[in-house]
Design a protein around this nucleic acid. Structure first.
Lengths: 338, 338
DNA sequence: TACTGGCACTCCATACTTCCGAGTGCCAAG
DNA sequence: CTTGGCACTCGGAAGTATGGAGTGCCAGTA
């Protein structure tokens, strides 16, 4: 169906269009790439490629532009991920290793990725449910109030205020704290509900209402904060590329947590380290002219969350994929080390 | 110099230009506002206003447009803050009161303000230095590591990992924790350095290196996190108004923490509840076509931080100021109550 | 003195026209 | 299957009208 030369032509069209942002014609293709054939032959190939839906012309008598399907083929079969330069990798490393807490790691990562790719970067906070409990702390802050602090192995800290049904003594708090930590140390967040199921039985009858209040807030925290937090950076880079009409739509999508979640969330195949979603493959209508390049990151073989880059469908996929992959790896390392 | 009618003309020009986004001429002014004089008279007044620098014409034979100076006069002397409707106030109240921690309060506030004004909202986290210590917690997380958690009266929680010079016993940790809380309870964050100055003397000689490590991290936290955190929302609203060229510059400014800080930070006079900075009055070159409407918020008479709105100089100042003032008040209330 | 109507003038925005050339599809020949 | 030639298409740039909103000025009026 598509012989090697036609594929080469498609690749050339994508590359030229990405770099010039102008529909590319048979003549300039023949000039810039040595395909060894004349423009007329290329025209024939282009006609076939168009018929099959890989490219299209904005108007009759204009050059060709890749379609989403064309980019898809390019990404899947015609390109290879482009590794970062040594200098870039060093820059990533030094930049990320200066971070001193989880917020800082995520903040630096998202800015770094935006700068590296000159596009919009999106980073999801390490998922609560996939990490484990490192420590639980209970702190009395007022007569009827406790502060519950939950610390995970990824350095994430969640805090919630608990209203207790009655005054609670230091002693009771200490007891509860000890119990909680015994039950939960190293426990996966998903297993917390089971792990604390029989905890009320272990406390004095008098303290059970308090224990119940604490547990209810604890469980609530796990549900509500369920890997919802996502940040982005680099919106200014959107202004550079011409989104004309849809810029507003894109910005709106970026400000919707839910949309962002779906954007990164619905993974493609997991065979590759980096997944790409192109144009209308995206779940959101407003993002029909954008592509998303995303990857998992985590500690060891444990996936914690995802990060990625959003840009025009007309983007430099090999380089972007390289940057995303590299940053994902380094973030994993940083998180493992801290 | 400027009699009442000329001021009325200026006010009318600002109002019309804000609502139509088109240079306004003498004829339409006479039609839409009953100033009781003919267009010719208005023309004379406009000539004077232009000479004094309050308005300008984009080209000969076009209508007039207010200058920054014109807007300034309008804001200072020709307009009054427009209170929100009862429905809007109810909406604010219900929306904000659903928040369950500081992050959530700030996040809701910034989205609320963006939606209310249809512009970009900016909210600074309650300043660390202006709040007081509610509790300090020390938690061993590994043999050579402690986690320091600092909780303030505004519900802000800072955590940092401390690398200790040697293993630390539970007992030592407990002792240190007790000492810290005794020294610091209710202490303004600015006074922390003094309050802990003599703390090392109170611990056993063996523990002094550990105490020193803890204190150094504690002080570091106060310095580094020094009210630096700022968030914004509503960038999509920028796309609606025509910033053409400078949209990129504005987005860039928004992503720079430092610029945002300066934007809210350098207050004007404190006589009014709401301060306005117009066009070139802004510290950043990229924001020369934008105005910022900002206000302090806090608990009681204690100012904690600022929040505000950023939009085109051509904005509806009375309504925007009303929204900013109202939101600032409600946030204060919410923080006080939690 | 302050205001008004009239008038000539300016000049932007819009619409219309022209024109160039890059690019195409097709065809006959190699 | 590939190639050069050729007629055709059509978008975009550049140039050309034209209409109308707006101005400044001036002489006349209250």
């Amino acid at each position: 169906m598509l012989d090697d030369r036609k594929l080469a032509v498609l690749r050339a069209i994508v590359e030229d269009y990405v770099s010039t942002n102008e529909p590319v014609g048979s003549k300039s293709l023949a000039d810039r790439h040595n395909l060894g054939v004349s423009p007329a032959t290329i025209r024939n190939d282009m006609a076939v490629l168009e018929e099959q839906g890989y490219i299209t012309q904005p108007h009759t008598s204009a050059g060709r532009v890749p379609t989403d399907k064309g980019y898809r083929l390019f990404v899947d079969r015609l390109s290879t991920i482009k590794p970062l330069s040594a200098a870039e990798r060093r820059a990533i490393e030094t930049f990320l290793s200066g971070a001193y807490d989880l917020d800082d790691v995520v903040g630096r990562t998202v800015r770094l990725l935006a700068q590296l790719t000159r596009q919009v970067a999106v980073v999801q906070y390490p998922s609560l449910t996939r990490s484990t409990v490192r420590h639980v702390e209970l702190v009395p802050v007022a007569s009827h109030r406790l502060l519950l602090v939950l610390i995970t192995n990824t350095g994430r800290v969640e805090q919630r205020v608990i209203e207790t049904p009655r005054d609670v003594s230091e002693e009771t708090v200490g007891h509860l704290r000890a119990l909680l930590n015994t039950c939960l140390d190293g426990c996966g967040l998903g297993e917390v509900p089971n792990a604390v199921a029989d905890l009320p039985e272990k406390v004095a009858v008098d303290d059970r209402p308090v224990a119940a209040a604490v547990l209810s807030v604890l469980l609530e925290t796990l549900v509500e904060k369920h890997d919802e937090k996502i940040v982005f950076a680099g919106a200014a880079n959107l202004a550079a590329v011409d989104f004309s009409q849809s810029l507003r739509e894109v910005l709106e999508a970026l400000e919707e947590q839910v949309v962002l979640m779906r954007l990164l969330g619905e993974v493609g195949d997991s065979s590759s380290s980096v997944t790409v979603r192109i144009g209308t493959e995206n779940p959101d209508e407003g993002l029909r002219f954008t592509s998303v390049v995303a990857a998992d990151y985590g500690v060891g073989d444990r996936t914690l969350a995802r990060l990625g880059v959003l840009g025009p469908t007309r983007m430099d996929y090999p380089s972007t994929m390289g940057a995303v992959r590299a940053v994902a790896r380094y973030v994993g390392q940083i998180l493992a080390g801290s």
